[in-house]
Design a protein around this nucleic acid. Structure first.
Lengths: 336, 336
DNA sequence: ATGAAAGCGCTAACAT
DNA sequence: ATGTTAGCGCTTTCAT
């Protein structure tokens, strides 16, 4: 069932069918009606790939998302959608799995949809100048930057927080509340990723306070799953009952940690305090409410699009924006 | 930058380039190397739309997902991926937004990717025979069925739970624990959707127990958001302090309800009991653990693919499978 | 207002 | 082993 079949069916040319398909004006009322009826009865649906190939050079940008289920991304994506609309621009999203390479995914995406630009949501921090060359359009890293790669600053944009500085803030908050035995819950200290950055902030805060880093309190879960965060917190509290506070690099891991603390018969924050970074929706509903440094999720989405549109339409330079978090004081940090 | 450019660049024909692109054997070592080098230096990336158009008639099925951020879907999608692999079949996923029509999205999707079949994850319960005609390939509704539409049973498959029966079970569980003032937290009673189905099970259970349905205890939030569930629970407990238990039609709404209960200075389960249906990961980490009827998420994904493959490859009939939930006894239901 | 024809980028016969 | 050619389904000049 192609456009040809429809054309043949009602005895017109394919161009006529194409015209009614695309709402072009110069088609007689009768013919238009006839074609539309044919389309309906034949259940004809145009082939998007064929359309994309010919490509009305639309105004479209894409977002490549790694980790569909990540609740942290949801508000960001919504904000992107909204902002793209304001710029009369279509935002097309492409989901990739953990094993996919976001660079090649983006390159393919750009070609097949003729995208003007790309936003990455959840990507590596260590791209090389060589590998990004395949992308071919301006791009912006959203919620991360290229701290471990060799990318030229002027060759791309980013919108993110200063992970080390924010982790330092979080740790300082605990220190200010009198905590000294502060554990950190993270994926890995040498992941070339957010874990490493936030770990450095944690270390810096301790150092500033004259507290030595205790390896035993550095809990590496090997990922961001709640189950491993739970297990590792259980283990931590087992071997080190003296821990008085935990800094988790993500909200969801903090939620799992809180459960582990509770399951051991300890209380948050009376026995163990918890602080994190993220500000995902569900961390509002823990009891007590999670104290966390909220990342500006909507602003991330909005700004990422704005920066991209600036480069695309106004010939602006690439830029690297660092947004700040907002401390949300919940009830998970107590004083010592 | 197209395949032609690459061909011209290294003085070969496009077919030769195409051959190395697709790893065809009959290309000399030297030429292959030369082409690969050209591809690398030119940063050439094939156009997926063009490829899809010519279509190696691959073995691919698609899943149309409404609600990217839905944590309930994550394990289901992973299971689908795995199962598709086992059948030497590629699963391609397509995200759609709330305002999109999943039927037309699927129809387009099928055409452009030449899909053999489709799975719907999160769709309407009231399709008409006419509108599904455009899909053109076998499809299966995953986690829902067509209870409010007029679809012929033999024209599609479904894998779901019996929503009314499960809601009845949940409500009965509360009744068995001595509760009589049982509120229900749902999106809407007449949504032509899961809310309506589970509401009917709730009513049936009350009726069986001789407990009249109290309209005041039917809390309609107009959606599935945590924030409205929180607000409405606050309102409920304000106007009806005698409520002793809440049946929430989803885990995430239950989590929000628990927070509302706690914020009012009441305790779960001593003052108010909570039960739900879903079994999402995060409901394992509430304190106390949410008591809920866990839907068989992995089995949903796996079975949906199996059913589709059966229809596709083995000429099996369409079927409508009803899976059962598993009661997970957490700590949110107490006795009266 | 309508049709004919070229071509988007690619793959796959079919030559050679 | 490599090149030539005919489409895939569609949009879009350019005629008429």
């Amino acid at each position: 069932m192609t456009i040809k079949d429809v054309a043949r069916y009602c005895g017109v040319s394919v161009s006529t069918v194409s015209r009614v398909l695309n709402n072009h004006p110069d088609v007689s009322k009768q013919v238009r009606a006839r074609v539309q009826e044919a389309i309906a009865t034949l259940h004809y649906v145009p082939n998007k790939s064929a359309r994309d190939l010919v490509a009305a050079p639309m105004n479209a940008i894409g977002v490549v998302i790694r980790g569909s289920g990540n609740p942290f991304f949801t508000p960001i994506i919504n904000a992107m959608d909204e902002e793209a609309d304001k710029h009369d621009c279509t935002l097309i999203s492409e989901l990739i799995s953990d094993r996919d390479n976001e660079i090649s995914a983006a390159a393919e995406f750009v070609r097949s949809k003729r995208l003007k630009g790309i936003i990455f949501l959840g990507g590596r921090f260590d791209y090389t100048q060589d590998e990004i060359a395949s992308i071919g359009v301006p791009f912006v890293c959203c919620t991360f930057d290229n701290q471990f790669g060799d990318l030229d600053e002027s060759s791309f944009s980013s919108v993110s927080i200063d992970d080390a500085a924010e982790a330092l803030k979080a740790t300082e908050f605990l220190l200010e509340h009198g905590h000294r035995k502060i554990a950190i819950l993270l994926d890995s200290v040498d992941s070339n990723s957010v874990g490493a950055l936030r770990y450095s902030g944690y270390c810096a805060a301790l150092k500033d306070a004259g507290v030595p880093v205790d390896c035993d309190l550095v809990v590496q879960t090997g990922g961001f799953s709640m189950s491993s965060a739970y297990d590792e917190t259980l283990a931590l509290l087992g071997r080190r009952p003296d821990v008085s506070a935990i800094f988790s690099i993500s909200d969801s891991m903090a939620v799992a940690a809180m459960k582990a603390i509770s399951d051991l018969g300890r209380r948050v924050p009376e026995d163990v305090s918890v602080i994190a970074i993220d500000g995902i929706e569900s961390s509002l509903y823990t009891v007590p409410t999670l104290t966390t440094l909220c990342q500006p999720q909507q602003t991330f989405g909005k700004t990422a699009v704005q920066v991209l549109m600036g480069v695309l339409n106004d010939g602006a330079q690439n830029e690297h924006l660092r947004l700040e978090t907002t401390l949300r004081v919940g009830g998970t940090v107590g004083s010592r």
